[in-house]
Design a binder for these strands. Structure first.
Length: 954
RNA sequence: GGGUGGUUAGCUCAGUUGGUAGAGCGUCUCGCUUACACCGAGAAUGUCGGGGGUUCGAGUCCCUCACCACCCACCA
């Protein structure tokens, strides 16, 4: 998307570095061109990052939220802009978008409104001051505090009410002091007026449910224009909201001098009729604070109130450093206190609640279908906890402020006309008597026009022109003779209108009348357009073939942090605009964190460039690692060690292919379909391929990408490389032609399956090997995904190979622990072998001997003293190592093994002897326990016999 | 204040309907065996945060406590 604030910010920063003219000096049109230039740069970066990561997108369908906007350069000619404007007009027409003067989060750095979601509340150290507001006319009252039983605990005569604040500078705009209706302490003075310190104004004491009697003094100053709570109180009680700050959050310096403004404020307080526009125009900041930054103003206000003796004070004992004597002094009460402060997520400056005209989406009216879609499962969110979060937010949704005072974005399709009215030209007697005095009355002393502009919302300029022509024509003569002229903004409109009126007053010539019209200079919140992504990218509102084919879409994969910003809004907007859910599944992944575990962000500059990791270690290991870390509901912490491990995995895969190549495997043409095999080893590995394919598919279907990646890792490394390649060596080197040919074919097929299954995770190395090992009809990326599964498993082959592996493992373990030199081939005795074990040995003798380093196998009926036993299912093997073993160490080893087995046996027997278990556990669980017990008992017997033999030696 | 998630081997974390705990890395021992030292073979390591409950059986379900993380929030 066009990332309004961020992109405008980055562009302006670059412009400053390059010493280009500033945005305002440049003007809107040129600046937009400059941002487009910036955008195309970062577009290149993003696309190349995606390509180097191996993203297999349909690049021909690249889309951009600002495509087709006026002034868009060549190549940016989609129609996303049209879609956005159409949706705005439609929603406005349906009454789902409205304009109003509301308290919004204002970012004083970017000088724009932002939405609730773009505010970060952070705990910061702050202070709380306590001030006295004196009762008007020197009145006093009995201030009485009572305990729970109503007994007075404190009593004094006061001429003031005490209020607490963390933002002293806002007291200049106070409109009232509020107390809780049940608060008996202040009951005597409710309805009375108090002096607002530093200001020549009186404000009333009112009651409202909002103040908490148990917090602070129980009395709250009400500054409707700079606090969300106060705003609500002010609205409920018709208290005027006086705006104190300008767009940079400095104390206002506009408008009439303070003494004039305050006069008018007093009239209003006394009940004089006023308008929202007039109240907003009144600058009630006393001269000495005008133009000060809000934090500087705070210091001044505190100092001035304190010096007037209106700070609540406390006696403080202090030591005079020179004389060493103690003093008692009155010090203002200033509590150090942690406060939650709102910061702009982009600008990082303190957000100021500001009373401004903005556009809002009436989210309450479009939220239900979005909630319903998830509740009924038409759209599913993974992980499920995401659904709870989704409900929680949507069920408590606030109106969405969608206007931004920026230039980079979709300009709001609304035009204003500052209408002339008949009353502008008549005096109280109805005569046509406009004079200079009248003009001043109309304009007001502050230079505003005491009237709202009319506005018109439309997608196309012709309709706008028609609307204002009609509007003008409806005015009485001579007003309808006015010329419509386009101006930049309301301020210019007021200027030209004033000049026009003045001219007319002098000349009475209707041709001097002017009807200024201007477009809303604001742009839409980026998320308003991103929210239309599902349809906007498919050509809507045109009924394109793409729209028919791809909408509703299937799965949205996105970061969990963006659930409200984007997902919830796409849900609401698609349902409101086209009446369908935009996707059936939302897969939320965690955020990749940096080495400190912190969120990476464009503006914070702690982003680890994927290109650097790719340069160093490769895209495949990065992708594979991310897949391994993609636990549902988890948040991956990327570490170089993990990526290195997976680079090694890639190398391993490559080496396996090298081995195959050296053994003529790739001299064969690729094998179509599952190859036939007679060799046990080959039959076994074919079954394992079937198993892993099923495992991978199951995992992917469940969005468990970590399971899929880990299954492939374990299969390729742990099965193919560790065992199959080793098993195949004797066949490839010493086997007869038939065995050799079959093994080559099977290995060829197995390796191809590895490439196919790994390709989504490691596209580069697999595609490379795919092309290098054969002349293929198509790219691996286009190869079909296999459909075989566990039906490829040959149970007999599987049992036999598992037996062989356990025997090899056993012999290796004994050798390593007995410190038998690795290269030394040793004799092995076989005893107590049943027919199955004998057969298995016979069929796999070559590979077992090779991998376990056995030089001879002798049948024996008795185990010689000092021989070490290796128990397997159906047979016991023994290594006669008397001369080289450490008997003590071996006894310890066997004893330990028996002990470990003992624990397991204890558990199994305990369960099986428990009648309740046998009765209530499922039959297959009981059977499994019985089989397991039998196996373990056999093993235990073998080990005990071995221990006994060792005991004979000493 | 509300919500969500977490607490499992030295570290980073898996553990899907309750059946008795795994991976990678690290550590230790051995090893150039003709794919691979970015390797191979072997080994050690867990009262699954504490307590209680349900159950024949709990890392897994319920309650509770402690700590951590994240999200949301208007206590002046």
């Amino acid at each position: 998307d066009h990332a309004g604030i961020a992109t405008q910010m980055v562009t302006e920063r670059e412009m400053a570095l390059a010493q280009e003219p500033t945005r305002t000096a440049m003007g809107r049109e040129k600046f937009m061109a400059r941002v487009w230039q910036q955008k195309q740069q970062s577009r290149g970066t993003i696309i190349s990052q995606l390509k180097r990561l191996g993203a297999s997108c349909d690049w021909s369908r690249e889309a951009f939220t600002m495509s087709g906007a006026p002034g868009a350069p060549a190549g940016e000619d989609g129609n996303f802009h049209d879609a956005v404007i159409k949706v705005f007009v439609d929603l406005y027409t349906k009454g789902l978008i409205y304009r109003g003067k509301r308290l919004v989060n204002w970012d004083p750095h970017f000088e724009t409104a932002i939405s609730d979601l773009e505010v970060e509340n952070l705990e910061t150290p702050g202070h709380m001051w306590h001030f006295k507001y004196r009762l008007a006319g020197g009145e006093t009252y009995d201030y009485v505090e009572r305990d729970a039983d109503g007994a007075a605990t404190f009593r004094e005569v006061r001429d003031y009410i005490s209020i607490a604040t963390t933002r002293p500078e806002t007291m200049l705009g106070d409109g009232a002091v509020a107390v809780h209706p049940s608060d008996t302490r202040y009951a005597p003075i409710v309805g009375k007026m108090v002096h607002l310190p530093l200001c020549d104004r009186l404000i009333p004491i009112i009651t409202d449910e909002y103040p908490d009697p148990s917090f602070g003094s129980g009395a709250v100053k009400i500054t409707g224009a700079h606090d969300f709570n106060d705003y609500a109180v002010a609205k409920r009680n018709s208290i005027p909201c006086y705006r104190l700050m300008d767009t940079r959050a400095a104390m206002r310096s506009d408008g009439a001098p303070y003494h004039q403004a305050v006069l008018r404020a007093r009239e209003i307080a006394a009940g004089s009729v006023t308008t929202e526009a007039e109240v907003d125009s009144l600058n009630l900041v006393p001269e000495k604070y005008r133009g000060l930054d809000r934090f500087e103003a705070r210091k001044q206000v505190v100092a001035d109130i304190t010096s007037q003796g209106l700070a609540v004070t406390v006696l403080v004992k202090s030591l005079d450093a020179d004389t060493g004597s103690e003093h008692l002094t009155l010090e203002p009460v200033v509590e150090a206190k942690k406060i939650m402060q709102p910061f702009g997520d982009r600008s990082k400056v303190v957000i100021e609640p500001m009373l401004t005209d903005q556009w809002f989406v009436d989210t309450a009216k479009i939220v239900e279908p979005a909630l319903d879609a998830v509740r009924t499962g038409r759209t599913r969110i993974i992980p499920a906890s995401g659904e709870k979060t989704y409900y929680h937010w949507l069920e408590n949704i606030e109106p969405w402020c969608i206007s931004r005072q920026l230039w980079w974005g979709h300009q709001i399709p609304v035009w204003y006309g500052l209408a002339l009215e008949a009353t502008d030209f008549t005096d109280d007697e109805g005569d046509n008597a406009l004079d200079e005095v009248e003009i001043l009355r109309i304009l007001g002393d502050g230079g505003y026009i005491d009237r709202e502009a009319t506005f018109h919302c439309a997608a196309d300029a012709n309709s706008v022109a028609d609307h204002f022509r009609d509007d003008l024509a409806s005015l009485p003569h001579p007003l309808n003779a006015a010329r419509i002229i386009e101006v930049d903004d309301r301020a210019t409109a007021v200027e030209v209108l004033a000049a026009s009126l003045a001219n007319y007053a002098v000349t009475q010539d209707p041709t001097h009348l002017i009807y200024p019209v201007w477009r809303d200079p604001d742009v839409l919140d980026t998320w308003f357009s991103s929210g239309l992504w599902p349809i906007g990218t498919l050509g809507w509102p045109e009924q394109t073939p793409e729209l028919k084919k791809y909408f509703p879409t299937s799965v949205l994969i996105t970061g969990a942090d963006i659930l409200f910003f984007w997902v919830a809004r796409m849900m609401m907007m698609q349902l409101a605009v086209v009446g369908e859910v935009p996707f059936h599944t939302v897969y939320l992944h965690g955020l990749v964190r940096d080495e400190k575990g912190e969120k990476m962000s464009k503006t914070r500059g702690n982003v680890i460039d994927p290109l650097e990791i790719i340069d160093e270690l490769g895209a495949d290991p990065l992708r594979f690692t991310l897949a391994q870390l993609a636990v549902v509901g988890g948040s991956p912490k990327l570490s170089t060690d993990k990526i290195k491990g997976n680079r090694n995995f890639g190398t391993k895969l490559w080496n396996a292919h090298r081995f195959a190549e050296m053994n003529g495997v790739f001299d064969l043409a690729p094998v179509e379909g599952v190859p036939a095999a007679t060799q046990t080893v080959n039959r076994w590995i074919i079954g394992e391929v079937g198993r892993v394919r099923e495992e991978v598919d199951t995992a992917i279907a469940a969005y468990r990408f970590n399971d899929a990646a880990n299954a492939l890792y374990a299969f390729v490394w742990g099965k193919v490389c560790d065992w199959y390649v080793e098993f195949a060596k004797p066949l490839l080197m010493d086997g007869d032609d038939a065995a050799k040919g079959e093994t080559r074919a099977v290995m060829r097929w197995v390796l191809d399956q590895c490439l196919i299954l790994l390709h989504p995770f490691m596209p580069f190395i697999t595609e490379d090997l795919w092309g290098a090992t054969a002349t293929r009809g198509k790219l691996l990326a286009h190869a079909g995904w296999p459909a075989y599964g566990a039906e490829l498993v040959d149970p007999a082959a599987e049992t036999e190979m598992r037996w062989a592996i356990s025997l090899i493992d056993g012999v290796r373990s004994v050798r390593a622990q007995m410190n038998v030199p690795a290269g030394l081939y040793v004799p092995v005795l076989q005893l107590e072998a049943d027919a199955a074990a004998r057969g298995a040995w016979a069929r796999n003798e070559v590979l077992i001997r090779r991998l376990a380093r056995i030089d001879s196998l002798t049948e024996a009926t008795e185990v010689p003293k000092g021989a070490i036993t290796v128990p397997t299912a159906g047979a016991t093997f023994a290594l006669p190592l008397a001369s080289i073993i450490d008997v003590g160490a071996e006894k310890a080893r066997v004893a330990k093994a028996i002990e470990k087995l003992g624990k397991e046996l204890g558990g199994l027997r305990g369960r099986l002897n428990n009648a309740n278990f046998v009765a209530s556990a499922p039959a297959e669980v009981v059977a499994e326990a019985r089989a397991n017990l039998a196996l373990r008992e056999e093993e235990e017997a073998q080990l005990k016999a071995a221990l006994a033999r060792l005991a004979e030696i000493g």
